[in-house]
């Protein structure tokens, strides 16, 4: 099982599209943990800074940053998750 985190913010114009892809990926990988981290909260910022996240949207898998910024597509996200599981 891998932990996939999406760092996003309510004020980021590209984050809703990233969230849509993220949620679809979560359905494809029911055995894995998909967590959305709101970077407009203190806890979210702390978590992001602990991984050295500096931009949203960012996807991290098992604590390792895989995708930074937008756009990325379903294939990019699938590759990031699959590589971590292999």
């Amino acid at each position: 099982m891998v932990k996939v985190e999406l760092f996003c913010s309510p004020v980021c114009p590209n984050c809703p599209a990233a969230r849509r892809l993220f949620n679809e990926a979560a359905k494809r990988h029911p055995g894995d943990e998909f967590v959305e981290v709101n970077t407009y909260t203190e806890a979210g910022i702390e978590r992001g800074m602990s991984l050295r996240v500096m931009a949203v949207p960012t996807v991290a898998v098992d604590g390792e940053i895989k995708l930074v910024g937008w756009p990325f597509d379903e294939g990019d996200l699938e590759k990031a998750v699959s590589e971590a599981k292999s």
Partner: peptide, 18 residues
């Protein structure tokens, strides 16, 4: 350094630079 300190959206990424 895009996404590693270079940003194009202050309102999005500003909180990381507290």
């Amino acid at each position: 350094f895009k996404g590693r300190g270079v940003s194009y959206c202050a309102v999005c990424d500003g909180p990381f630079f507290k």
